[in-house]
């Protein structure tokens, strides 16, 4: 069993339990232990875009120090927002030693961060380390006949060079879904933002966004949308369900990509948290009777 330090973040311990539990179960079947980082703290959720806001980088850097304390050099995340803040803060101090020195000087209890911790998203680990061939071989229940629309959102892909894939034409989720046997449904909104944190205060804006995304997926015949972020998932699921009933609002369930991975590998997908329940469509396609824990 290979071991990779893993950063869960707040969502995966609360409303996105299924995202984490499905990932842990699926990765175990692929021979990987996602080892939860000791004493992790909030990543800060949103990366500061200001040139001078060093305080905002403390939380992510402190997590990277925890990785360093383990004698490890990489950290894997599941949540796209955590991925964005951790990865970008790591880069922010990597490119300017003065910034890093100031941040290190501010923290009394920790050892200095030396740099060099690589932040990875699980989708990249599945692609680059596990490999799609090994995943295909491990599939017990191919998702044949299941039409899945991938949804990337923003922080998984942007900014250019730091995301897991090309920001305009990503393939990583499509390739994973294909390896699982699912039919990939392409749609024009897969890299377009769901409204993110505007969901607190501007639910109207988010509802318009998710209606457009879901509408594109429904129009192309998708059964499900696959996500990689608890905030995208909340918006595409809870906010979409709240907008339901208004004229023209589409309805389609969203699940985390780890839940589809678990399902295909014969592990428990930990479904049941969604406001728009994915289980009826999965049962109708014949996928739920064969799940075991």
């Amino acid at each position: 069993m290979k071991r990779i330090p893993y950063f869960p973040g707040c969502g995966l311990k609360d409303q996105a339990r299924g995202f984490e539990l499905a990932a842990l179960a699926a990765m175990e079947r692929l021979g990987y232990e996602l080892a939860e980082l000791p004493r992790w703290n909030c990543c800060g959720t949103v990366y500061s875009l200001a040139s001078d806001d060093l305080m905002r980088h403390l939380a992510p850097i402190r997590n990277l120090i925890r990785v360093q304390e383990l004698g490890e050099s990489r950290l894997v995340t599941l949540c796209s927002m955590c991925f964005g803040t951790l990865k970008r803060s790591a880069q922010f101090v990597e490119e300017d030693s003065e910034r890093l020195a100031t941040i290190n000087a501010f923290m009394d209890e920790e050892d200095d961060y030396q740099g060099g911790v690589e932040v990875l998203h699980l989708l990249a680990v599945l692609r680059d380390e596990v490999g799609y061939e090994a995943i295909e071989e491990a599939v017990e229940r191919p998702l044949e006949g299941l039409k899945v629309a991938p949804y990337y959102g923003c922080m998984l892909l942007r900014p250019r060079g730091l995301g897991v894939d090309d920001p305009d034409h990503p393939r990583v989720m499509e390739e994973l879904l294909s390896a699982l046997g699912a039919e990939v449904v392409d749609h024009p909104y897969k890299v377009e933002c769901c409204g993110s944190y505007l969901t607190a205060g501007r639910a109207d804006v988010v509802e318009a966004r998710v209606a457009a995304i879901a509408g594109a997926a429904v129009q192309r015949g998708a059964d499900l949308i696959a996500t990689s972020c608890p905030l995208c998932q909340f918006n595409l699921d809870t906010r979409l369900s709240q907008a339901a009933g208004r004229r023209g609002t589409p309805s389609i369930p969203s699940v985390y990509f780890t839940q589809l991975l678990a399902l295909a590998l014969g592990a428990d997908p930990h479904l049941g948290e969604q406001a728009i329940d994915p289980r009826p469509v999965l049962a109708a396609r014949g996928f739920l009777s064969e799940v075991r824990g």
Binding site: G11, V46, T199, A200, P230
Partner: peptide, 14 residues
């Protein structure tokens, strides 16, 4: 019920 990820994100930005 709003998830923490939304609350932390929005209050840090606004």
């Amino acid at each position: 019920r709003l998830p923490q990820i939304a609350l932390v994100g929005a209050f840090r930005k606004m």
